[in-house]
């Protein structure tokens, strides 16, 4: 146990020391963005993996957070840190408004509804004038890679710790899993599914809003496609699915691997950019077929099958989930 804590402290120490070791801002940027994707993947997984709701509009919260910060800094002249709580709040409000009607849906219907909502919000931002429409918004540049590294590290680390506590330690985690496994049975055991699903939705949306806010200030330019387009959601989905749904560490590993692959490809193989999406698609298809529980899920089930002779075949789990009792 104490060895575990020592390793954790060592790991945190290394993370804190990164900006003083990595002098090259190019690499520091990569690490910073990797953190951001870890945050997006684990926050998406709160709803998808733990609660069983595939949200294809996760980018909504990222984009809403980014736009809130941009508008407040540009039009109202607020300082960055003052805008963060507002971005979180706006993401929460959007989550409640979007969640109340959509969380009644299940399975593919929820996925379609959230995806459609994301497209609708992207269109609204595109035609509005205070958002700059298709031209996007420029923010006052603040060129300090270390600042963004630490901000990202603190936020993502905090989200990771909060999710670990709420989902793995506190009763809340078991409650959302109960809803995922069988909401009727959960209801007969005193759980209010609507309330718990909404809480999970908030736990998923608010971090995405904060990450969007940081992203906007960091990149200093946002437009509807870059922060509200499909790519934000899709990449988080792909990372979480590849890493392993329903775990904390899985989506984080998936985020690092896929983000590094993408960055490497774009930096060194830019002549072959067309191939990137093709390869990514192939990897996803292969991981769904061969690693239905994701990278981390496969590793842990191997470990368990070593311990116990009998372990549940992965395919029976996915059969259960596919059961359309919608």
């Amino acid at each position: 146990m104490s060895r575990k804590y020592l390793l954790l402290i060592l790991f945190c120490g290394i993370l804190l020391a990164v900006p003083s070791i990595v002098r090259d801002t190019f690499y520091l940027r990569i690490v910073t963005e990797a953190f951001m994707w870890i945050g997006l993947a684990i926050s998406w997984d709160v709803l998808a993996g733990y609660t069983g709701y595939l949200n294809f509009g996760h980018g909504i919260f990222f984009g809403v957070g980014a736009y809130t910060t941009s508008i407040l800094m540009n039009l109202c002249g607020w300082s960055f840190f003052m805008t963060l709580p507002v971005s979180a709040l706006v993401a929460a409000v959007v989550a409640v408004i979007a969640g109340i009607p959509t969380l009644r849906l299940k399975g593919a219907y929820f996925a379609i509804a959230t995806w459609a909502l994301a497209r609708a919000i992207q269109q609204m931002v595109l035609v509005a004038s205070f958002t700059g429409g298709p031209d996007g918004m420029r923010l006052p540049p603040f060129l300090h890679p270390g600042f963004f590294y630490y901000t990202m590290l603190i936020v993502v680390g905090g989200v990771f710790a909060l999710n670990w506590f709420l989902l793995e330690k506190a009763p809340f985690g078991l409650k959302v899993k109960a809803i995922r496994e069988d909401d009727q049975s959960a209801m007969s055991l005193g759980l209010n599914p609507t309330k718990i699903k909404l809480q999970a939705f908030l736990l998923s949306a608010v971090p995405a809003g904060i990450l969007g806010a940081i992203y906007a200030y960091w990149i200093t330019y946002i437009d509807p496609a870059s922060v509200l387009g499909d790519m934000v959601t899709d990449q988080a989905v792909v990372m979480a699915v590849f890493g392993g749904l329903g775990t904390l560490i899985g989506p984080a590993i998936g985020a690092v691997i896929i983000f590094l692959f993408k960055t490497y490809f774009w930096a060194y193989l830019s002549d072959y950019q067309v191939l990137y999406l093709i390869i990514l698609g192939g990897v996803i298809a292969a991981s769904v077929v061969f690693l239905p529980n994701g990278l981390w899920g496969t590793i842990t089930s191997y470990r368990q099958s070593d311990k116990a002779l009998k372990h549940e075949p992965v395919s029976s789990r996915s059969d259960d989930k596919g059961d359309p009792h919608v």
Binding site: A178, E181, Q184, S188
Partner: peptide, 11 residues
């Protein structure tokens, strides 16, 4: 209880 049993299968 439910006639068609409803365990939380994955837990």
């Amino acid at each position: 209880t439910f006639q068609v049993v409803k365990p939380f299968a994955g837990l």
